[in-house]
């Protein structure tokens, strides 16, 4: 009888369930209008990229020199470039490049970086020292310069660029993951698991890793934007995606010569890059704040 009473009591006391927590998370996340707007914008851009062939009014690579450098009209909403290609269509296809490179590069950076970070944190000693020095070396070269040098050697293209940007970004993850593993390793629950006779590998994958992930995810959402900026930058310099594939950075680069004739040629893709990155960062910041109640400072 007495036991039953406490059981009922305990049920009542237990906090939110997982589902309720998820609902609460999204409520907090989207409470800020800006985050909601950005999330919607982001979804729209992604959809636009996926369904580019359906959305784009023209083939992005078909030239029609007759129509070169037209200003916006009802026929060409954003005008045409110096080869007479429809800029709107090129921008729509360009979204694919930005998104693919952004996501792929961050995925690669994260995969390699967390792996080495984990090794460094878990084994310590010489492994840690070596990995640390190498990651420090990578960090000491500004990311864009490193990517440029690698591009010079290995060439551009979507896949190459993703790998290159991935490598030049991985140091952040090495450092983060290492720090995470080192701190999680010291927690009581990992010690408890160890004392129960868990083997190192199981300890690592069952108890340490799952608890390291959330700051990494936040970092990833914020980094996609940065990577998209880098890709655009490299393409702008003529080192990233090469013609005729449409990339926002290279369109700006091509268009800057024709600012007099059709300013939209250079400015429209630039605005697109800015918007996409703003959306990504706003959502990323929102996720971080929603996960971290500490950020709600006060004065």
């Amino acid at each position: 009888m007495e036991k039953e009473n406490t059981v009922v009591q305990e049920r009542k006391e237990a906090g939110y369930s997982r589902r309720e927590k998820a609902v609460k998370f999204f409520r907090v996340l989207f409470k800020r209008k800006l985050v909601l707007i950005s999330a919607v914008g982001l979804v729209l851009i992604v959809l636009m990229a996926i369904f580019a062939p359906l959305v784009a009014p023209y083939d992005p690579n078909v030239q029609s020199l007759m129509d070169a450098l037209k200003t916006p009209s009802s026929q060409y909403l954003l005008g045409t470039d110096n080869y007479g290609r429809d800029i709107l269509s090129r921008i729509i296809y360009g979204a694919r490049v930005s998104l693919i490179v952004g996501v792929l590069a961050v995925g690669i950076a994260c995969a390699i970086g967390t792996f080495f970070g984990m090794l460094a944190g878990f084994f310590g000693g010489i492994v840690d020292d070596v990995i640390n020095r190498i990651s420090e070396a990578i960090r000491s070269i500004p990311q864009i310069v490193l990517a440029m040098a690698l591009c010079a050697v290995f060439g551009g293209g979507i896949i190459n660029l993703s790998i290159i940007l991935g490598i030049s970004n991985m140091a952040v993850y090495i450092r983060m993951m290492r720090g995470q593993v080192l701190s999680i390793k010291e927690t009581d629950y990992v010690m408890a698991a160890k004392l129960q006779g868990n083997k190192s590998l199981r300890l690592m994958f069952k108890h340490v890793l799952p608890n390291c992930i959330s700051p990494i995810i936040v970092q990833m959402t914020l980094q996609v934007g940065q990577t998209i900026l880098s890709e655009a930058g490299l393409s702008f310099l003529g080192l990233g995606i090469s013609a005729p594939t449409a990339s926002w950075g290279s369109i700006v680069s091509d268009g800057r010569v024709y600012l007099m004739q059709n300013p939209f040629f250079a400015l429209a893709p630039g605005v697109c890059i800015a918007l996409l990155v703003i959306f990504l960062n706003t959502v990323g910041d929102g996720v971080r704040d929603a996960l971290d109640p500490r950020m709600r400072g006060r004065l």
Partner: peptide, 27 residues
């Protein structure tokens, strides 16, 4: 290992936040 066990001071840091209560006890 199995014959000597430990109860920790801080009930908030001594349980793996990603495991369910059942799997913590079953481990």
């Amino acid at each position: 290992r199995s014959r000597i066990a430990m109860i920790f001071q801080d009930p908030f840091s001594s349980l793996d936040p990603r495991q369910t209560a059942g799997s913590i006890v079953a481990e």
